[in-house]
């Protein structure tokens, strides 16, 4: 019981950190064409995410690996039920990584324009698809003892799409703020303008999400039972307002930090509402995948807990160190021989 709960919390944390970190890469990737008008500016934007995107993406692989190790039945059913959606996510992540890495390694306007488009698509689709996937998980999937009774199209319901749009907007603001922090001159100004403008759309989507969650899902049941949990959505809302407050005041680093908190708290808000389900069933509650009926043995969970307790802090330490090493602004990129 204890270990299942520990791994449920870790599962939520892994997803939250993934969204918080890779979210700004997705945002920057979607905004590249809007924020950068020439090759030098593009390199500035790309160098702002270049050292980090791969390490950020590993949080997704770890979230997937942790699901496999701690809740194998959930991993198996979630991945096979959402086959086509995950396939699209996979292809878009592949496209994103290759676009970033290959773009700068040959000359030619056509070559670079092609990979720029790959980066755009490879950033937009993961944002949208993970949002749609989580929206549907919050709602529950149409599954019972017989199996799964849905398709790709059933995932594209209004609430799923709303969650997808929410994620895209979250990451757009997040990415724009990161670029404002990491660049200077015109690019910084454009990024700040974009963050401030998109924020209004984000606010609208967040409000729509909070309201429709009450109708489309059973997430709020846990909040009725344990009102103390309301601190999570409250923190999300406050952080969202703080994002705008700092961003409008030109304090981009603080605004970015607030945006980090927003993303983490939005994720926690959803995950806390799911407990103890990992994937609820929308048609047969008894067939829901919970942390109890889908978990590994306590022995395996204990081993994995030791691994996580030892290694995750080490990972956080050296990733934080790497962010410190590259804390400078990408301003005079034309003068430097940057990798991209």
């Amino acid at each position: 019981m204890l270990f299942q709960v520990i791994w449920f919390i870790l599962w939520g944390v892994l997803w939250a950190v993934f969204f918080m970190l890779d979210g700004f890469d997705f945002g920057a990737g979607m905004l590249l064409g809007r924020l950068a008008k020439n090759e030098a500016e593009k390199r500035a934007v790309l160098n702002a995410i270049g050292p980090f995107w791969d390490g950020n993406e590993v949080w997704l692989l770890t979230a997937g690996g942790a699901t496999f190790a701690a809740f194998p039945a959930t991993y198996a059913l979630m991945f096979s039920y959402l086959y086509t959606a995950l396939l699209l996510l996979l292809f878009s992540l592949i496209l994103r990584g290759v676009s970033i890495e290959f773009r700068g390694k040959a000359e030619g306007a056509g070559w670079r324009r092609g990979w720029d488009f790959g980066l755009f698509l490879g950033s937009l689709l993961p944002a949208l698809l993970t949002g749609v996937a989580f929206g549907n998980i919050f709602m529950g999937l149409p599954m019972d003892a017989e199996g799964y009774h849905g398709s790709l199209l059933t995932l594209l319901n209004p609430y799923g799409l709303l969650t997808g749009v929410l994620f895209v907007l979250l990451f757009l603001v997040h990415g724009a703020l990161w670029i404002a922090v990491k660049t200077g001159g015109e690019v910084e100004r454009r990024a700040a303008r974009a963050a401030n403008a998109i924020w209004y759309a984000l606010l609208a989507a967040a409000a729509a999400f909070l309201v429709s969650t009450g109708f489309a899902t059973r997430l709020y049941a846990n909040y009725m039972k344990a009102p103390v949990l309301l601190v999570l959505p409250a923190a999300a809302v406050l952080a969202l307002l703080a994002t705008k407050f700092y961003s409008a005041g030109g304090k981009y680093l603080r605004a970015f930090a607030a945006s980090c908190v927003t993303i983490v708290m939005v994720t926690f808000t959803g995950v806390a509402g799911l407990f103890p389900n990992l994937i609820p069933s929308s048609i047969a509650p008894a067939s829901s995948l919970t942390i109890f009926n889908s978990s590994s043995s306590v022995y395996t969970l204990k081993i994995m807990t030791v691994v996580a307790v030892v290694f995750v802090p080490i990972v956080i330490l050296y990733q934080a160190w790497a962010y410190r090493v590259f804390r400078h602004k990408e301003v005079d990129i034309t003068a430097e021989k940057g990798p991209y």
């Binding site: 690996g65 190790a69 691994v307 290694f311």
Partner: peptide, 10 residues
């Protein structure tokens, strides 16, 4: 699942 998750983590 365990060695896979450990692979990612370490």
């Amino acid at each position: 699942g365990a060695p896979l998750a450990i692979e990612a983590t370490v």
